[in-house]
Every structure is written in structure tokens, then in C-alpha cells.
Amino acid sequence: MKKISVMLVDDHAVVRMGFKLLLQGSDDIEVLGEAQSGEDALKQLQTLAPDVLIMDISMPGMGGLEAIGRVLAKYPQQRILVLSAHEDIMHARRVLKAGASGYVTKRSAADVLMQAVRAVYKGQVYLEPEVAQAMAVEQVSGSKNPLDALSEKEFKVFLELAKGRSVQEIADAMSLSPRTIGTHLYNIKQKLNASNSAELAIIAIRAGLIKP
């Protein structure tokens, strides 16, 4: 029987090791390789060609959301399952919009991760049950989140600002100029009707993106 081949993408070696051991405990899944960043994953994809790419989204460099876009631009048929520490529905919505096929959190039980890999491999969309329920409730209530108006880069800058990082620190981390980050900051404040970083932090806390 052909096993489902996967590649793990996470910047923490210990995390990769843990999930590798977990996945290889199944009869129908094998881990072909590992990558520590989106850039690293792109380099290895052509050689490894895994059935499913299991990717974190909070990584240095281009980050997971941008990596999803770049992977699918180059390999449109690639199945991507996001395995994230973020338990809010905002991140889940964004990865699905970017083209990923599934979203599970790192606190998921082993059987949930296995189900997700198998579902994504078959071409299905898989959401961790708790996340799927929260998204359904939001859809039924008809509530719109102003954060949805942010572009991917603006969303990334917004999160860093909400965590208390300075414009210079964010510029260094994202390999952009402080002026570019300043432009993003201006647009973020306009879209979210916020006047300072403290208000941005409050918005992030209310959305469940960061802990108070």
C-alpha cells in the first residue's frame, strides 16, 4: 500500500521531531523530509515532491502565509496542511484564503492530525472541529471582522505591533525599510480606526490573536 508522503515545515527542530515521531507511528503516513522555513521548503519541494506539505505559519523570513502563496504559484497541485499554535479563527480563515487545504492547531490530538493529513491528501478541506465550529457560528451571526480588510503584509505587521515590537524591529525581521513599515502602520490604523499601538494591541486581544 502506498503511504502518504509528507514534509514538515517548522522553524523549531524539537517540534518537527515530535510530529515526525507521531506521524510515523501510523501505517499509512511517512515523513519524506523537513524544512525550517518557507524558503527552505521551496528549495526542497522540487526534489521531494511530498503528497502533503505540513506547515507552520509563524516562522522567520517570509512566514507561512506568504510561503503558501509562493508554493502554490510554483506547484498549483500541492496539498498544504497548516499546523499552527494559533487557536483563533482569524488565522484559519487567512490560510484557507491563501490556498491551504487544512488547518489544525498544535494542541490537536494525534488522531485529528492523522485525519487531517488523510483528508487533505484526498483533496478535501479539513478544519479542526473546534475551529470549524467557531467559524460556523461567526458566519451564522453575520458578524464581520475589520481585520479581514488588512492585506497579508499588513496583518503580519499588525500582529508584530500589537506584541509591542518597534517599527525598526519589524523592518529588520521582515527585511523591509522602516518607511515601508511606517506606510503599513498608517494603513492599518486607518482601516482599524486605531490611533496608537495600545489600541492595536486591544484589537488583537479581543480577536484572540494575542494573550493579555
Rank of each mutant, 00 (worst) to 15 (best):
E128K: 07
Q77A: 05
Q46I: 12
G182L: 02
R118H: 07
R179A: 01
G61K: 00
H86Q: 13
I205A: 07
K191M: 06
Q46M: 03
G208R: 10
E138C: 00
S166A: 12
G64P: 06
K163P: 14
G208E: 04
L113D: 08
I205G: 08
F155L: 05
G102P: 06
M135S: 03
Q115K: 05
L8P: 07
E154C: 09
H184K: 13
V9C: 06
G69M: 08
G38M: 06
D11M: 03
A85W: 10
S166C: 10
K3W: 07
P178S: 01
S175M: 13
Y75M: 11
L32W: 03
I57F: 01
I170A: 10
S26L: 03
D28E: 15
K153H: 12
L22G: 00
I89N: 04
K122S: 12
A194Q: 09
V125T: 12
L113S: 12
S166M: 13
L72D: 02
L192A: 02
F158V: 02
G63F: 00
M62W: 00
R94F: 07
T180A: 09
D27S: 11
R94P: 05
K122I: 05
L150G: 07
K74S: 07
G142V: 04
I210Y: 05
A49I: 10
K20N: 13
R16I: 10
A116D: 11
F19D: 07
S151M: 07
L192I: 00
R16Q: 15
I80W: 00
Q124P: 09
A85D: 14
A67D: 00
A198D: 15
A149W: 11
I170F: 14
A109W: 07
D172G: 12
V6C: 14
Y126L: 02
K106L: 09
V140F: 03
A100P: 09
N187H: 05
S37M: 06
G63K: 07
A100L: 06
K74V: 10
D148E: 14
A162W: 10
D40A: 04
R118T: 06
A173R: 02
E160P: 14
K144Q: 11
H184W: 04
V167A: 13
L209W: 11
K2R: 15
V104H: 14
G182F: 04
L209Q: 06
E130C: 09
N187R: 12
K2C: 11
Q139Y: 03
V71G: 01
G164W: 11
G61M: 00
D27T: 03
L209I: 05
N193H: 13
